[in-house]
Simulated assay, not measured.
Amino acid sequence: MDQPLPRDPIAEAQRNWQRRGWEQQAAPMAAVTAIMRTQQLLMLRIEGVLRPFALTFARYELLTLLAFTRRGELPMSRASSLLQVHPTSVTNAVDRLQAAGLVDRAPHPMDRRTTLVRLTPDGRDLARRATDALNRDVFSDTGFEADDVEHLIRILARFRQQAGDFAAE
């Protein structure tokens, strides 16, 4: 956006919900809508930082996931599970990353039905450089106050756990 809006459209939507008699749903609607808009704004920043690396956030996540493993490789099905995306999304990301020379595919040494996705040295280097840029340009200054970040982590983790996103520890 070039210019900020003159007023908050989510607050206006909340007032419209209340005027229509949906008082109980007005604040939750505003909260959900605000979370979704915040996600859009953060993704715009992240994508702007990743653009010079020719990476989307999905491809960056896959490279980083592989970089965090001991051997720089995972079964594609495991990558799909850990990234919480459909296997087709991982296949598409691997296709693009492989074409760029950042990952390759290999047969699993003990399970012929399984394909491993492996980080190449160029992929490891790009993941490190992209992470340095994200840390510097996004994660060091998210726009949230430090106390708010800790509250958000707890609130969103509780929601995700209750929604079945992960098991309680």
Rank of each mutant, 00 (worst) to 15 (best):
M1W: 00
P4G: 00
R7E: 03
D8G: 02
D8N: 10
P9D: 01
A11W: 01
E12A: 08
E12P: 00
A13P: 00
R15L: 06
N16Q: 07
W17M: 10
R19G: 05
R19M: 05
R20M: 09
G21M: 04
W22K: 07
W22V: 01
E23T: 11
Q25W: 09
A27Q: 10
M29W: 09
A30S: 10
A30G: 06
T33E: 12
T33P: 03
A34T: 14
M36N: 12
M36I: 08
Q39S: 12
L41P: 01
L42W: 12
M43E: 13
I46G: 06
I46N: 05
I46H: 08
V49H: 04
L50V: 01
L50A: 00
R51D: 08
P52V: 12
F53Y: 15
A54G: 05
L55V: 04
L55G: 04
L55K: 06
T56E: 01
T56M: 01
F57K: 11
A58M: 06
L62D: 04
L62V: 06
L65Y: 06
L66N: 03
L66S: 03
F68K: 09
T69F: 03
T69E: 13
R70V: 02
R71N: 13
R71Q: 12
R71T: 12
G72H: 04
L74I: 03
P75F: 01
P75G: 06
M76P: 01
R78Y: 08
R78V: 13
A79Q: 00
S81D: 13
S81L: 13
L82F: 05
L82P: 02
Q84D: 11
Q84I: 11
Q84P: 00
T88W: 09
T88H: 09
T88F: 10
T88E: 14
V90A: 02
T91Q: 14
N92C: 07
D95K: 15
D95Q: 13
A100P: 00
A100G: 04
G101D: 08
L102N: 03
L102F: 05
L102Y: 05
D104R: 15
D104P: 02
D104A: 11
R105F: 03
R105H: 02
R105M: 07
P107V: 12
H108P: 09
H108Y: 10
P109M: 10
D111E: 14
D111L: 13
R113A: 15
R113T: 15
R113K: 15
T114Y: 07
T115I: 15
L116G: 02
V117H: 00
R118L: 06
R118Y: 00
R118K: 14
L119G: 01
D122L: 14
G123N: 11
D125Y: 10
L126Q: 14
L126D: 09
R129D: 15
R129W: 10
A133G: 07
A133S: 11
L134C: 04
N135L: 14
D137H: 15
F139M: 03
D141I: 02
T142F: 12
T142Y: 08
E145T: 07
V149N: 00
E150N: 11
I153A: 07
I153Y: 08
R154T: 12
L156F: 14
A157W: 06
R158V: 07
Q161D: 02
Q162T: 09
A163G: 05
G164S: 00
F166V: 03
A167C: 06
A167Q: 08
A167H: 09
A167R: 13
E169G: 07
E169W: 08
